[in-house]
Amino acid sequence: MTDVNTHEHSDHPVTSGRLPVADVPHKPRRTDVDPKAARRAERQVAGMFTLSVLFVILFVVAYVAIPKDANVYIPVLGLVGAMNLALGVTMGAAVFLIGAGAIQWAKKLMPDVEVVQERHELASEPADTAEAVDQYERGKEESGFAGYKIIRRSLLGALALFPIPLIVLLRDLWVQPTDTPNPQAELETTIWRKGSRIVVDGSYAPVKASDLPVGGLISAVPENMMEVQEEEHTLNARGKAAILVVRMQPDEIRSQQGENWDYQGILAYSKICTHVGCPISLYEQRTHHLLCPCHQSTFDLADSGNVIFGPAARRMPQLPIGVDEEGYLVALADFAEPVGPSFWERG
């Protein structure tokens, strides 16, 4: 093991200041020895800068001349917007050519000899450190920081507490509704009520039990979804109330979360994954498995919506359903457990 300080390369003399490195074989470039090559490099660099100017002009022309909705077919790329293509290519070329020209200039015409500079130790000279310590000590003395114990302690206390208002002010990031005691109260309920009709998401048409075939799947919401959404101006209610309605042969249902929560083999489950809240949409009719596209948690809807694979820990909450007097599917109650991701106070 050789220490860095004792080992000096006698055959690699170190030169200081702006001097070329000794002892490195250096081959002159063609531009160094052949004036013709140098002139050619000069023309290349100037050519690139000039072309850049040309592309800027083309950019402006393209901006003005090409209609916004024009498309153009380019091999490999396919059908693309003409404007975006023209602007990107002209701007890209204009900017790229400036860079390419500058680098060509540096590589061919500027000196290519590496030079040496000495490093200096980063640590301060002991004398400087001593002087700094002196000045600090004098300041400490003059301020009496060491002597006035009460001042020092009260100042530290004041400084420690002054950020409190800044933190308190963050409290109303959530303006808590007066009738909501705490956040979990909002997470534990949805807008499903006893008798809420189940309507198809999108068309908002109520669903007749007899119209849903075995193996069928519907993405659904409560009938009052639109009104609630317009009243609240948010998608909050939708984020909790969305459900999936599936129909299977009644004897295929191995278990469910409450007695007779199905209606003749029709089951309704929350659509919001209990892992981190992605809406679930992949349902395999044959196995009755439900797969979350985000993290691949898999649930078995024929078996109480239990987790059969993946990172989700809890089963999908089931919505008890039945039919009203007209034969339309309705909820018999709200969910019995909170939908969506777990949270601390969930219990």
């Binding site: 890209g92 900017v95 790229f96 390419a100 500058a102």
Partner: peptide
């Protein structure tokens, strides 16, 4: 001055240019 300035400065335009080309293509 001048080599590193030309190379590093030029390289900025190269990176910028390539990003613009990507954005267009």
């Amino acid at each position: 001055m001048p080599v590193y300035m030309a190379k590093a400065g030029g390289f900025f335009f190269i990176v910028f240019g390539i990003i613009a080309l990507l954005g267009g293509l």
